[in-house]
């Protein structure tokens, strides 16, 4: 079981994710530079697009990253059914690249918000959440200025009908439509969420509620690499 983590210029959670996959979970993990063009399907089982400010968030968060070389490899991996987890800026990149529905706009408060949030697990029938209990409330911190998730009414109905909503905040924390904190694609192999699961894997620095997300993933693998 191998993890891959993408490093864009301005990513700042790649080392945190690496710590969790490598040290906490004990799994082999590779960092990939945004200029590379790897065949992920042959190299790794799971891919993380970490948080941070890729390319300084200039233009819009994720707007420049989506044009990076490595996005071709990411899209191929997605098509192939590879598991992709986008956290915070990673989520923003995935929506910009149209690998996930919706868009992330400025928080309602027009400020950066960093705080612990309560999340409701809306869908346990995904590769990312199969170890959680239905409607379980978990704690995970958020840290973003641009996490206000927007979907049109039609799109909302569509993601609801396809059971793509994975996490919801228990209160409206940043203006997100239907309190959505995380969504997956129709095929359920790509998850994007604004809260930071990698920050909730060790008791001494917070909750350990994020661990089950990574552990759920380990139960799903396309092939041995």
């Amino acid at each position: 079981m191998k993890f891959g983590i993408i490093q864009f210029p301005g990513s700042n959670c790649e080392k945190d994710c690496l710590h969790v996959t490598q040290e906490v979970l004990g799994l082999e993990t590779h960092l990939f530079d945004y200029r590379e063009n790897p065949n992920f399907g042959r190299l790794i089982n799971y891919l993380i697009i970490p948080g941070g400010f890729s390319f300084g968030d200039y233009l819009r968060p994720g707007a420049i990253a989506k044009a990076a070389n490595i996005m071709t490899s990411i899209k191929d991996f997605a098509k192939y059914g590879g598991f992709i987890l986008g956290i915070c800026n990673g989520f923003q990149i995935l929506t910009e690249a149209n690998l996930l529905p919706g868009a992330l706009i400025n928080n309602l408060q027009n400020r950066f918000i960093c705080q612990e949030t309560n999340l409701q697990i809306v869908n346990t029938n995904t590769p990312f959440t199969n170890l959680y209990n239905a409607d379980e409330i978990i704690k995970m911190p958020i840290a973003h200025a641009c996490g206000n998730y927007y979907l049109s009414k039609t799109e909302l109905k569509e993601v609801e009908d396809n059971e793509q909503i994975v996490f919801k905040y228990t209160s409206n924390i940043n203006g997100s439509v239907a309190n959505i904190a995380g969504v997956c694609n129709k095929q359920k192999n790509i998850l994007g969420l604004m809260p930071h699961p990698e920050r909730s894997c060790e008791k001494e620095i917070g909750s350990t509620d994020g661990l089950k997300l990574f552990q759920s993933l380990l139960k799903n693998s396309l092939l041995e690499v």
């Binding site: 948080g51 400020r111 918000i113 960093c114 840290a143 620095i205």
Partner: peptide
């Protein structure tokens, strides 16, 4: 005030 600051990145904040 401190809600506007990322307080946990780097996973060291005890």
């Amino acid at each position: 005030i401190y809600k506007q600051f990322d307080q946990q990145v780097q996973l060291n904040t005890l």
